[in-house]
Nucleic acid binder design. Structure first.
Length: 470
RNA sequence: GACCCCAUCGUCUAGCCAGGUCAGGACGUCACCCUUUCAAGGUGAAAACACGGGUUCGAAUCCCGUUGGGGUCACCA
């Protein structure tokens, strides 16, 4: 049997962190067993589904690198098939028409609450003679669910879970307007798409019982279920808009590389021994449902950030440059010139270990690309006053005499100048840093000198010297 | 409220199924080292089996209960 998994988001909002992880696990599982990973857009709620949300989901998946197999299936396009299945079930006696009014239903719900649980729907029309049907009421179609016994699902994550059938009522399959409900559509689609494993959030666990009853009524074999615990916000509460439930693109915009987000998400609820940092290919090779935990996890931005820093450090310079060029150009107000790009790539090795996100990195890289004269920040400006200016002049003189410009030769020259002046290296390095970068924080100063080149370096130093003099 | 699920450092987790380890790792925190700033890196430290009963020579591991957290209870998906 070929494994077929699916991710089935409803396009009523962005792709959130939990959905992304669900998609990731489904993809891992399909890859692990050489199967297929399908995408189904559950857009049957026309009132709430939006084109923008659909795009956000597709783009989010693509950004994360979670490509699906084949074309996405749109649930709304299959409504006629869903309804036909329900009508066939009706003809076979596995379902019936119910003419209850919303008021009657509300009363039943109230009665059930007073009773302290159990079935909501009291079965009024289950065995009633259809001849008694009121003529002016459009009926819904309900499943004739089993009254006693229990419905059991053997969940790959949760284990065997059983619910007594007297807790489950006759769910609506077809609305009064003839459109199928979610519960029916999901079952028909999963069946028609040959889904073998349904990996989804814990919040669907109770739906699994209802769906199992539909499968049974239809005489279809249910797929295997794996209900993964939800991701909670940092405070332990359910992820909601108030509690850090952002769209995946928000994390992209915060500067987290996609591989860091994937790696982080993979470790939330799933583990492979003590492995923390791994590629998605490795994870797919290791992945199995039995290694998914049963308890919910809290979202921890600090750990994501540390993974982000790791992937930035490890990333190839040219690729990294490509990722931060757009925001850099935006800050500069112009596209990068070849010279700026060359300096950027050359400066990246020193910049990388100092950045935690791509946003940090772009910000820190700005000084390599800024045109002269640089505008020093307040702390840097202070380093260029009085004594600092004199030491800077000392450093300039030492630098100006260098024949073969390199990080090493610059270091030799500046160290010698510091020693001659009876100063510590830092006394010359900090003013130099302020002049060269406009800041008090930067990569190693000799590396900066090297990347900038002799002419640009001396030019920036002179800019500072002149500013301090004037 | 009813039904269902869960419970190891602050967080993510290994260990649990097939009881015997100083309960391991990672993030974060703290200290020290390195050092031209800031990072990175290195070394080290503090930090957990929710509670109560069993079963057993022995329980984080098996059983029951309590407490705490979570999910679901629509003609939404």
């Amino acid at each position: 049997m070929t494994v077929v998994t699916r991710f089935a988001p409803s396009p009523t909002g962005f792709l959130h962190i939990g959905g992304a992880r669900t998609a990731l696990f489904n993809r891992f599982y399909a890859r692990r067993y050489g199967g297929k990973f399908l995408l189904r857009i559950e857009d049957t709620d026309r009132a709430r589904s939006t084109e923008a949300a659909k795009q956000a989901i597709l783009e989010g998946l693509q950004w994360l690198g979670l490509e699906w197999d084949g074309e996405p299936v749109y649930q709304s396009a299959r409504a006629e098939r869903h309804a036909a299945v329900a009508r066939a079930l009706l003809d076979a006696g596995g379902a019936y028409r119910c003419y209850c009014s919303p008021e009657e239903l509300a009363a039943m719900r109230e009665a059930a609450r007073k009773r302290g649980g159990g079935r909501l729907y009291d079965g009024t029309w289950r065995d009633r003679d259809p001849a008694e049907a009121p003529e002016d009421v459009a009926p819904v179609v309900r499943l004739k669910a089993p009254l006693d016994g229990e419905t059991v699902i053997d969940d790959a994550v949760q284990g065997r879970v059983a619910v007594r059938n007297d807790q489950l009522d006759d769910m609506v399959l077809l609305r009064a307007d003839g459109t199928p409900t979610y519960m029916l559509s999901v079952v028909v689609d999963d069946h028609d798409m040959d889904i073998t494993h349904i990996v989804r959030g814990d919040d669907h666990l109770t739906n699994a019982f209802r769906q199992t009853q539909i499968y049974r009524a239809l005489g279809w074999e249910a797929p295997a279920f794996a209900h993964i615990p939800l991701i909670h916000g940092p405070d332990g509460a359910k992820m909601s808009k108030r509690h850090g439930a952002l769209g995946i693109e928000a994390y992209r915009d915060m500067g987290f590389p996609a591989e860091a987000v994937c790696n982080y998400l993979a470790r939330l609820g799933w583990s492979h021994g003590d492995d923390e940092i791994f590629s998605m290919t490795e994870a797919a090779g290791w992945f199995d449902l039995k290694d998914i935990g049963r308890s919910p996890a809290r979202f921890d931005l600090a750990k994501l950030t540390s993974l982000s820093a790791h992937y930035i450090r490890e990333m190839a310079d040219t690729r990294l440059a490509g990722l931060i060029e757009p925001p850099l150009a935006a800050r500069l107000g112009a596209p990068l010139t070849a010279l700026q790009r060359a300096r950027l790539v050359a400066g990246l090795p020193g910049l990388k270990p100092r950045a935690r996100t791509l946003v940090d990195l772009a910000e820190a890289a700005l000084f390599y690309c800024r045109p002269r004269p640089l505008q020093p920040d307040a702390k840097a400006a202070k380093l260029l006053d009085g004594a600092g200016r004199e030491r800077l002049a000392l450093a300039r003189a030492a630098l100006a005499g260098i024949a073969g410009w390199s990080a090493e030769s610059a270091e030799t020259a500046v160290r010698a100048a510091a020693e001659a002046a009876g100063e510590k290296l830092g006394a010359l390095a900090q003013p130099l840093r302020a002049a060269l970068t406009g800041s008090t924080v930067s990569p190693g100063i000799f590396e900066v000198l090297d990347v900038l080149g002799k002419a640009e370096s001396l030019g920036r130093i002179d800019d500072s010297l002149e500013r301090a003099a004037g």
